[in-house]
């Protein structure tokens, strides 16, 4: 997915920005009906972003709710005429956590990932505390053996762009937030 374009986000629109980046890549690589019609003087990528903004009920002030991400994407794909797209979420707030082997599927031309990240502080061995954050979404460019190259749609004034990182899955941890301390089956630690 290395040739993915990089639209930057505005305000709290990281999810539709990250989604539009990977979906635009699919549009240019075998699925042309994902791309809006070319209209002189308009930016096609920006028009795709706006469609996703509407489908996923994104608020510039509040961002995107987890529970509408997958259904919003599915409805978008149906509207473009692709009825057989599988969109699945695994992770925090969902039923199933997953090991990093799931990301190996990114090597297939018809599979892409949007990573939903949060910022927390390591407070001890397998102990973390949650930071006050809305969370963030990024796209996966390449993945192999716990090394990922990602595309961050951050605000133009921040640090939008490509980053390489190695992450380490850590299983059976405890997370403390304002509601208390509870177990999590899996987190991915970044350096």
């Amino acid at each position: 997915k290395y040739t993915m374009p990089d639209l930057d986000q505005e305000e709290n629109t990281c999810f539709p920005a990250a989604a539009s980046n990977i979906i635009y890549w699919f549009g240019e690589n075998g699925y042309p009906n994902l791309l809006p019609a070319l209209v002189t003087g308009e930016n096609r990528h920006r028009r795709l972003f706006t469609k996703l903004l509407v489908h996923c009920n994104v608020s510039y002030r509040l961002g995107t709710k987890f529970e509408v991400m997958t259904t919003g994407l599915k409805n978008f794909f149906k509207e473009q005429g692709y009825n057989d797209v599988k969109v699945s979420y695994r992770g925090f707030g969902g039923a199933v956590f997953t090991g990093p082997e799931w990301f190996e599927k990114n090597g297939q031309d018809n599979v892409g990932f949007i990573l939903c990240i949060d910022y927390v502080k390591k407070t001890g061995e397998r102990e973390y505390s949650a930071a006050e954050s809305l969370g963030h979404c990024i796209s996966l460019l390449t993945y192999s053996d716990n090394v990922a190259v990602i595309l961050d749609p951050a605000h133009t004034a921040d640090e939008r762009g490509r980053y390489t990182f190695r992450f380490q899955p850590v299983r059976n941890v405890r997370l403390t937030d304002s509601n208390g301390t509870y177990p999590l089956p899996l987190v991915y630690e970044l350096p």
Partner: peptide, 16 residues
């Protein structure tokens, strides 16, 4: 540190 809290996978129909 950042921690991945989840991921969304998009699987398009296979290309012919």
């Amino acid at each position: 540190a950042a921690i991945l809290t989840g991921a969304i996978c998009i699987e398009m129909p296979p290309l012919a």
